[in-house]
Structure formats: C-alpha cells, structure tokens
C-alpha cells in the first residue's frame, strides 16, 4: 500500500513534469524540423536574388524605383526550451536550445522580406538590417518571455535595365 503510494508520489513529483517536458520537446522539435525544411525549400526558390547589407547602393546599380520592404516573424519558445534555458541560466553558457529558435526567426524574417520584394517585382535589396524585440510577458508576475519578434527590413530596388549591371 505505502510502496504504491510512494511510487505514485515519485511519479507526481518527477515523472509527470518529465512527461510534460518530453511532450513539449517532441512537439517543439517536430515543429522546428518542419520549419527548417520549409525555410530551406523557400531559400532555394529565392536563390540568386541579391540581398546585401551595404548601406549605400553599389555605384554600378542603375535603378528605376525603390521602396522599403520588411519581413517579420513572431516566434515563441516551447516549454522544453524555456525550462532548459532556465537551468542554463543558473550556471551560464550558451543557451543552446534558443540558438535554433533565433536562427529560424532570422532566416524566416529575411525570407519573408525577400519574398515580398520579389512579389512586388523588385530585383535586389540593399541596406538590409535585422531588429529583434522581446515580446510581452508570458506569466502574470511579469516574468518570462512570450516570444521574440525578428524584423528584417531593407531598400528594394528595381533595375532600369536588367542586364546593365554586374
């Protein structure tokens, strides 16, 4: 009787949170893998489209029109990443579980910006910048992060004559 209770208690104390953690991990990593696959596919599609960070336009670009283009993504941590990052916060070091999250955010934001520029018929983007901001609080006590926003923006240009450049 008491042995069973103890097993149950051990489960309530350790097994249950571990189960939640594992569920969060499997769902989170599934979504992450799918996202990376999607990013790679779309990156192949926009392959060759010049996206550069020069803040002035290269001299030999002969452009007819320009506009600012943006791409942004808001992305959230899963419970697994949050817990592991919390543990990491005690001793310091690379928060390895956050790295792929921010990598996804960066590439997705750049992709969205590029796709937007292509959709509007532009030929290249220069002066590309990335900005990030912490978004809202996940918990009632004001601690915790609900997610991050990654914003990519730049100046998209349309070449006057497509083959006058390069």
């Amino acid at each position: 009787m008491d042995g069973n209770l103890e097993t149950l208690e051990l489960f309530l104390n350790f097994g249950f949170p571990l189960l939640i953690l594992m569920i969060a991990y499997f769902i989170g990593s599934h979504i992450e893998k799918r996202h990376f696959r999607d990013i790679r596919e779309r990156e192949t599609k926009v392959h060759g489209f010049p996206v550069v960070s020069f803040n002035t336009m290269p001299d030999d670009w002969n452009v007819s029109s320009s506009d600012m283009v943006t791409g942004s993504i808001v992305i959230s941590l899963d419970y697994f990443k949050r817990v592991i990052a919390g543990l990491r916060g005690l001793i310091g070091g690379r928060i390895k579980t956050y790295e792929p999250l921010l990598e996804r955010a960066r590439r997705e934001a750049l992709l969205r910006m590029t796709e937007e520029a292509r959709l509007q018929g532009y030929d290249a983007i220069f002066n590309v910048r990335l900005e990030t901001s912490r978004l809202a609080n996940a918990r009632r006590d004001g601690k915790g992060v609900a997610g991050v926003e990654m914003l990519a923006f730049g100046t998209a240009v349309k070449f006057a004559s497509r083959f006058a450049n390069s």
């Binding site: 991990y25 990593s29 990156e43 489209f49 697994f80 592991i84 990491r88 005690l90 390895k96 390069s166």
Partner: peptide, 28 residues
C-alpha cells in the same frame, strides 16, 4: 554579386537538445 545559400551549423550548436537537457538536469 555571387548568390550563396545561408550556411548552416555556425549559429546553432550541434549538441542534441536532449543531451543538453539531461546534462543540465542531472548536473544541477
């Protein structure tokens, strides 16, 4: 201008998340 695909594996550690998790949990 030479178009390149983004390089992978520089910004992301190759430690498996579960290895990272168990190391931290057991160690702490």
């Amino acid at each position: 201008f030479v178009a390149k695909q983004p390089k992978e594996g520089i910004n992301v550690s190759d430690t498996h998340p579960l290895v990272e998790a168990s190391t931290l949990v057991v160690g702490l």
